[in-house]
Design a protein around this nucleic acid. Sequence first.
RNA 1: GCCGAGGUCGCAUAGCCCGGUAUUGCGCGGGCCUGGAAAGCCCGUGGGAUCUUUCCCUCGCGAGUUCAAAUCUCGCCCUCGGCGCCA
Length: 424
Amino acid sequence: MLDMSMFRDHADVIRSDHDRRGIPHDSIDEVIRLDGEWRKSRYEADQLRKERNDAARGIAEAKKSGDEAAANAILSEVADIGAKIDELAAYSDECLLKRDSLRMGIPNILHEDVPVGEDDQKNTLHSLHGEKPEFGFEPRNHNDLIDMNGWVDQARGAKVAGSRFYFMQGDLARLEMALQQYGADFLMDRGYTLVQPPLMMNREAYEGVTDLSDFETVMYGIDPDKYYLIATSEHPLTAMRMDEIIEPSELPIKIVGVSPCFRREVGAHGLSDRGIWRVHQFTKVEQIVICKPDDSWDHHEELLGNAIGLWDSLGLHYRVVNICTGDMGTVAAKKYDLEAWLPGAGAYKEVVSCSNCTDYQANRLRMRYRTSEGNSAVHTLNSTAIATSRTLVAIMEQCQNEDGSVSVPEVLRPYLGKNALESL
RNA sequence: GCCGAGGUCGCAUAGCCCGGUAUUGCGCGGGCCUGGAAAGCCCGUGGGAUCUUUCCCUCGCGAGUUCAAAUCUCGCCCUCGGCGCCA
């Protein structure tokens, strides 16, 4: 959510950002109008409240000196003031509520480096990493590899839960655990604190960190308790400090979170999605930074650097892209994706997403830090380190052998105690 | 699940019985003092509006009673403690 000062003093910045995104200005104008209405009615109600408070003080004085007649005189003068205040207050509350629910839907201001374009075809190449693997045979896609090795039981996953649920088993499950451990160790070495978050959140906290439409398409809701299963540990870990005023000495807060992630994946179907590339549940090692506004762009590059260091150490081939305006979403001001090469699919596909959300989440979460000029919103950033299911797919496809076995990346061998994944 | 206690400004606290301007300490920021510091003293330290001067709101949340609610009434949420159940 953008700060109100943006609408009052720099509406032109929001308008030109909407132009870059190719969306209309209606909501901006309406927010500004409602803000004016709110301020006006709020001021009038405040004046009436002042009258009432003055009268109440007068009555208190009169009663203290035993002058009942004077007290009653004041009382009759202000008899109907309460009703007037209620009426104005109801109107001003309504304006405020409308203003802010509209404001929640207005996206963050994009960084100037964000390329303009309508969809992911217009994302720009940032860098290429690792060697594209060459095979002396026709490489298989990961779905064939998990089937022939018995590593994932999709049919029984569908039976006990539903489509896109799965049982992961044997050496692939061991590799999954190794990735979690390795990813967490990698980031702890770089000064990040390991945190395991709650896997469910309440609505209020969740609204602080995500696009509202995600409640329909992404998150699972748990009734009757009104909880939501987290779609990523970014959500609880960012909301962790909501409603807090953070001492500057605590900043930057650097966290590595490890958790299962739950996603409805509404609308995703099709043969190309078979396997574990797009599933309802996976585990993710996530990087989180909460910092002072002036430092956030440096931290954004740091998070990208960590992801690159981690993926380079796995020996995989991938590229980094700079996400364009049309592919950006509501919350981030700038986003890099890492896209791993999948030889079986013959394409680069998204495995890491690295975002600077500036003060957008912090404003909604009322998450501030203390400065000598008062309290000011912090900036929040997040980046995938390892999304296990997709990393497993990249490893399977890039490190596969002709017999269908899969070589384990060097750095993971100590965690598994073997050099290749064996079939079940 | 049952019983009990509690939720007040960044933290800690007083006020609640008996309705009438949110108390004090710590921390933090600024100032005075100093060669410099410490100590001491003074001011500030939640949100908002504003004619820049003042005003309004804020005591877990919401309703009610009242001229007036941190304070009284009702409902809800959360935390802590005890008991029960439990990986």
